[in-house]
Design a protein around this nucleic acid. Structure first.
Lengths: 191, 191
DNA sequence: AAATTCATGTAATAAGTTACATGATTCC
DNA sequence: GGAATCATGTAACTTATTACATGAATTT
């Protein structure tokens, strides 16, 4: 499971609580591996039981005790082993492609409306990518530049992928608008 | 749930058994919504209980009885309603991007090995896309050309996306080979 | 002789989502 | 006064995967 290894990777930088991990995940791997809070807590529990993490519970006066998780040697070995193991091609589930597959049963107007809504969503996503909050950048400055390079690469992948999707949708919308139902030539990457 | 609606869409063409649906899914929506056999049978059971499908069991001498599923009017209404409902942007989980995120902890050699393995996988996928079996094409000829257009569009999306991934990986591999750790400029789509 | 096709299913497990619950503090 | 932050968790549910089971007929 990948969330486990993502958590190991983050805790390998520094010990953290589940709450802090959630925030870290939201600003780091979120766009290619999102995780909700309950999933993180459940996973931490299991990882501790597996001996990949150790916990230190720090009581507080007013708030619930902070449970600070630290990666163990066993966890580090697990992480480094996983890190070097080639992952299979990611299987992507894209619900709107199912709709497009069956779009023959819709009117052009309706298809265009939906595709435009989709395009707007991807364009918004693109903007979100390019607008990385300043305080994130501030935090990163202190970190290892080699690490930073790879962090930026993952963001760059998201940008490149989203640009591709925007371009593809734009092309398809134009084709339908012009009633040009020419079958696309597979493998033709030119817009 | 999208598998349900994909099944409704396929049964809207013609009644089928679970076994036949599995084969149809493998050659149609598989690359953006794969489904294993057990999942299909379970889902069919639920859909029939919900009144979206009706079943006719046809006994056979030597083999288990064929359970032919037919979409009901209720199922058609459900399908058409879903078809027009904009789906949210698809959340993609890409495990190898987690590895890339943490790649700062690996040697360049190891990173390159893994990226090359990944690239080979995507190139193979690309070839699989362009080599659509002839008997699939044969079957399609009888079908509505408007339907065919949208079917080909979904394949074209897969091709376009995979080409993008191949190009991106190639770019990154070259950058690392040349020890060019320049932070990518976000939003720069030129190779 | 071995593998594939046809055709159904079940059981166990894993991974993820949604929603609820608590409760003080601090910021707007 | 209301929202957000800190900080934990549970419960119910959904979706998907892996592996097993049966058994004749046909193809390689």
């Amino acid at each position: 499971m990948s969330l486990e290894h993502a958590i190991l990777g983050l805790l390998n930088y520094e010990p953290m609580t589940g709450y802090e991990l959630k925030k870290m995940i939201d600003i780091s791997i979120n766009h290619f591996w999102p995780a909700v809070q309950s999933q993180i807590y459940k996973t931490l529990f299991r990882m501790e039981a597996d001996g990949w993490l150790s916990v230190e519970t720090i009581s507080q006066e007013t708030r619930p005790p902070r449970k600070v998780y630290t990666i163990t040697v066993k966890g580090q070995n697990e992480f480094l082993g996983w890190l070097e193991t080639p992952q299979p091609h990611s299987e992507t589930r894209i619900a709107w492609l199912i709709q497009l597959f069956f779009a023959g049963q819709m009117t052009d107007e309706k298809i265009l409306t939906n595709l435009r809504t989709l395009l707007a969503g991807y364009q918004q996503r693109l903007q979100a990518f390019t607008e990385i909050p300043d305080d994130n950048r501030e935090k990163m400055k202190e970190d290892d530049p080699r690490d930073q390079f790879f962090w930026m690469l993952t963001a760059d992948f998201g940008v490149a992928q989203t640009i591709g999707q925007v371009q593809w949708l734009t092309k398809v919308i134009h084709a339908i608008e012009n009633h040009n139902y020419t079958l696309p030539t597979l493998g033709d990457s030119s817009k």
